[in-house]
């Protein structure tokens, strides 16, 4: 997970792109994960538990759950991971350029 996300973030540097996390770890665990895995992208911190307010509002019951939104804020992909995530992001970039 982390290595793939790091390489995606590096590849999309200077492009209109971000990973935005919603993290469900207790504070100490979260801070340790950020440091040890060199996580540079932002995350909401959802209260330290899986039943946090954001996860609840989004009815998330499995982790990770991933939504990919286009630049207009429309949900375009769900749970695309690894290569599928790269392809989804590339397709949305291409779409943006065409508009």
């Amino acid at each position: 997970m982390y290595p793939h996300e790091r390489s995606l973030v590096a590849r999309m540097k200077d492009k209109p792109f971000t990973i935005l996390g919603v993290n469900s770890d207790p504070v100490e665990r979260y801070k340790k994960a950020i440091k040890e895995n060199n996580i540079t992208w932002p995350s909401f911190w959802d209260g330290g538990k899986t039943g946090g307010p954001i996860a609840t509002a989004w009815a998330v019951t499995g982790w990770p759950t991933i939504y990919i939104l286009d630049a207009k804020g429309v949900i375009r992909y769900k749970n695309a991971r690894g290569e599928a995530m790269d392809e989804a992001v590339d397709a949305l970039m291409k779409e943006m350029k065409a508009e």
Binding site: M1, E5, L8, M12, P16, F17, T18, I19, L20, G21, V22, N23, S24, D25, R29, Y30, K32, A33, N37, S43, T50, I54, A55, W58, V60, W63, P64, T65, I66, Y67, I68, L69, D70, A71, G73, M85, V89, L92, M93, M96
Partner: peptide
């Protein structure tokens, strides 16, 4: 204005 990968995650 940005493509967002919204990632519900935990370590």
């Amino acid at each position: 204005g940005k493509i967002v990968v919204l990632d519900f995650w935990g370590d």
